[in-house]
């Protein structure tokens, strides 16, 4: 079943185009990573899905209805980011008790388990928590709510690496125990690629690609060797990325498209390198070829 469907989705803030004709769909019970550079439109897309914003053009459907101002959609969604506000009068343990009334799948045991594991002080107020702790607390709510559609927008901002690892593990475990549709937007692809199933990559408000992580890992091939040889060998191929090293050596990344590594191994001075997902996404979303090096060459 398709949970989210976007049709030519466009959102502009005044003259600034945040999303540009985005068409995509997200299937039920998938853990999708929303990846993109700063300002690629990740948060805007997530807020459109949650029904907080209205598309300027195009259409979005969540659970087959327009999410804007829809109670039905709101009841089945939880949107976790670091802008969540809870009443100043509530202490942390009050929040956990009160929020539970809104979500029918609320898992109090999980909430309290995580709450104690991360050693929160139940008497503290949400606003007095540090940024990392706020993110952790919001994450607990996001997991315990067990909403059919759970959206995490940069959930790990401010968390230290130990907590981030715990969070990914908790997310994966709870997802396996209680499968649901989860969208996770993040900058740190290297950290989340192990738990994601699909990746939706945004570039400048448009869809760059939407594939499973397994496919993406086979997407590209890196080749390193003397510049002339590499260029010669890759003639006719689309270069995703090139990087020059000292002594005329060149590193190039191409789309794999069914090429096997055997074909390259014949040439002795060519070195085959794996391309990490994170690097691949950086290459794919590069604005200009050549990356930061280009600036210094001029």
């Amino acid at each position: 079943m398709t949970v989210i469907q976007g049709e030519n989705l466009t959102k502009s803030y005044g003259k600034i185009l945040a999303l540009d004709n985005l068409t995509f769909q997200i299937e039920e019970n998938k853990l999708t990573g929303l990846i993109g550079r700063n300002g690629a439109g990740k948060t805007t897309l997530l807020k459109l899905i949650a029904g907080y914003l209205k598309p300027s053009r195009g259409e979005i459907n969540v659970f087959s209805q327009n999410p804007f101002d829809s109670l039905q959609v709101s009841a089945n969604i939880i949107f976790i980011d670091n802008q969540m506000v809870f009443p100043a009068a509530f202490r942390l343990d009050d929040i956990l008790t009160e929020v539970a009334h809104f979500y029918q799948n609320w898992n109090a045991k999980l909430a309290h388990g995580l709450f104690e594991y991360f050693s929160f002080n139940p008497k503290q107020r949400h606003s007095s928590l540090s940024k990392g702790n706020q993110s952790t607390f919001n994450m607990i709510i996001g997991l315990a709510a067990r909403c059919p559609l759970t959206i995490f927008d940069e959930p790990t901002s401010g968390m230290d690496s130990a907590v981030r690892k715990d969070f990914y593990r908790a997310l994966l475990k709870d997802y396996l125990e209680y499968p649901r549709t989860i969208i996770l937007s993040s900058h740190l692809l290297s950290e989340v690629e192990d738990i994601l199933e699909d990746i939706l990559l945004l570039r400048g408000g448009t869809k760059c690609l939407h594939q499973s992580v397994l496919e993406l890992k086979e997407y590209a091939l890196g080749l390193k060797g003397p510049k002339q040889k590499v260029l010669e060998r890759l003639k006719g191929q689309e270069l995703l990325h090139t990087e020059e090293f000292a002594q005329g050596s060149l590193y190039a990344v191409i789309k794999k498209q069914g090429l096997t590594s055997q074909e390259f191994l014949k040439q002795a001075d060519l070195e085959l390198l794996p391309v990490s997902l994170e690097d691949l996404c950086i290459y794919l979303t590069d604005n200009s070829k050549g990356g930061i090096d280009h600036v210094f060459k001029q």
Binding site: Y52, D69, S70, L71, V85, F86, P87, V99, F102
Partner: peptide
Amino acid sequence: RTMDFTLVTNRLS
């Protein structure tokens, strides 16, 4: 308003 829209709500409720 943000407090409302942190949890389940629509504008009418």
